[in-house]
Design a protein around this nucleic acid. Structure first.
Lengths: 336, 336
DNA sequence: CTGAAAGCGCTAACAG
DNA sequence: CTGTTAGCGCTTTCAG
């Protein structure tokens, strides 16, 4: 940081007091139009930009939000960040991005630091390691608004933006069965994530509902490591009574599923029907094109940010536990 | 922002002066081990987190970097951000992310605001609209370090991290020709981007080198809008002497190319060989699997951040125009 | 309508 | 080794 033309320099040049200049710049009603004009003109000329940290310190307001997400290498979060940034930019807010790499410890540390007043609000999508969510209480006690998105907790009464994980997975499973699957499988990820539980419950509910049609069904527990997942899925497909339908609960499971089928010569959709949660643009050019549960990632990001700003702007009136659900869509393609 | 336990409260509780507490917390050598211990213990107990903005104001150092990118919905930037964030987290820095949406005006405005002292350094990947780069001069005049990555300018002597766009595209084109292509085409994006020019030049150089083998070659100008690109590519493929080999200069052109081929029944790789710049994990499960020029996105992000921190930490010694080139790799798959 | 002055929370001389 | 003090640049009473 290097010294800038500051408000004092402006004041001196204009023969005004610092206070007057400050008010003029913030367009205070108690300053004459003339003065405002002069001040603004010079500010522009000298390329004056107020020091945000001085302002933050004084006003106890950072005009910054923190976005804490597990990963960014998945297309869901790319799109979500885009939505968040869009709204933030519109509101004149700045966006700090933090990755937890699915680690609870990191998540905890990051949130803890937010108690410093660095941010006016937080958007959080839980790490898969995160089982309990009491690490968010300190934020609450400091009245720092928090909105969960996508990976929301279900044990807390907070603002959250999620998609209809249960219902869409229920629908998707029904669809698989309708298409003739008798041995459907659900590829599960972290058990801690309510998002995974909900999807899984949707799956189970459908199995239950269709139990007279179903021969067998299974939950296949996958890991965070995709090479392992390849092996896990391969084994599952080599067992007797291997699945004839798969619901992949996250985007990154698509690649191992397709690879296994290629390597084991399993025809999709004839031998195995596949549906994946995914926002991949390339779903349509896979072979066969992939039936996806498309999450409204961008919209969820936008909505979460909008909600957060509502909380930031008028904490009192706002409901502290609004839960917005933006539905996903099942896009049917050739893989089913 | 709500009032926190601040350094004054700590000092009072410990019967020490504010200055001593401050030094103890920053582990100053002029404070006794005993005192430090006491201070740190109480700080922990009270969950004391120093106000970063007060500190920034006083030290003229924000411990924050700004990352300015055109889009985040492309897998390149997802990976790059991951690399950046990794290094920043290690260094105890915070990362502000801004999207320009390919707009020069936005890019300019964002950089201008950085003159306020909000960030200690900037990582920039140019918007496709950006033709001139004098909007970065103000940063330079304030001595705010700047490192370009990926979309670097070539008219400036600055630090930049890029990949070997020219060479890899030269190699890729050679490979196409070697595989029998006689009518190769290059799908071009924004002409302003040096990255595109360099790739294009690599293409042309190869055409030149192989001119006795080539029947015809073309540069197909694409847009930012993928539905338009579909039409553009379709038209190109319907003309006489349509390409028998394509180099797609950016990832998002893959989908329209594959779709056109599907719709026009053009067999890849028999009738058309395709290579695309891409970091898509799904390249391997496309049909046919896609030969890609894989950019080291994560490594570029990391390297750019490392370079930036070197500049931030010791401005003097550091070369102000280091140009790091991290090579891309040509991964050959079935589409060629 | 404008100015004076206090202070946000922290750091860094400087003095002791 | 610890304390005192003067700000960083800005906002905001409160007076005039």
């Amino acid at each position: 940081m290097i010294e800038n033309t500051n408000i004092r320099a402006l004041a001196k040049a204009l023969n005004l007091s610092i206070g007057t200049v400050s008010k003029a710049l913030r367009n205070s009603h108690e300053i004459s139009a003339q003065t405002k004009e002069k001040v603004i003109a010079l500010a522009k000329e000298l390329n004056y930009i107020p020091n945000p940290y001085a302002s933050s310190l004084r006003r106890k307001k950072s005009n910054t939000i923190g976005v804490v997400i597990p990963e960014v290498a998945d297309s869901f979060f790319s799109h979500a960040i885009k939505g968040i940034e869009l709204i933030a930019q519109k509101k004149g807010y700045h966006v700090l991005v933090y990755l937890t790499y699915e680690s609870f410890g990191k998540e905890e540390a990051i949130l803890k630091e937010f108690n410093s007043g660095r941010v006016d609000g937080v958007l959080l999508s839980l790490a898969s390691e995160t089982a309990k969510s009491n690490h968010i209480d300190s934020l609450a006690s400091k009245d720092i608004p928090l909105v969960f998105f996508d990976r929301v907790p279900d044990d807390k009464d907070t603002c959250k933006v999620s998609t209809n994980d249960f219902e869409i997975c229920f629908d998707a499973t029904n669809y698989l069965i309708e298409k003739g699957c008798r041995r459907p499988a659900y590829l599960s990820i972290s058990k801690h994530l309510s998002i995974n539980r909900k999807r899984m419950e949707g799956f189970k509910k459908s199995i239950e509902k269709n139990k007279d049609k179903i021969k067998n069904s299974q939950i296949i527990q996958c890991s965070n490591d995709n090479t392992k997942n390849y092996e896990i899925i391969k084994k599952a497909m080599q067992r007797r009574n291997s699945p004839d339908g798969i619901i992949a609960s996250v985007e990154k499971l698509t690649t191992p599923v397709y690879l296994v089928c290629k390597d084991l010569n399993i025809a999709i959709p004839q031998k195995l029907k596949v549906i994946s949660f995914s926002n991949l643009e390339t779903a349509v050019i896979l072979n066969p094109s992939l039936t996806t549960i498309t999450q409204p990632a961008f919209e969820m990001g936008k909505k979460a940010a909008e909600l957060l700003f509502k909380l930031i702007e008028k904490k009192k009136q706002q409901q502290k536990n609004e839960h917005v659900i933006i539905p996903s869509t099942l896009t049917i393609r050739e893989s089913t």
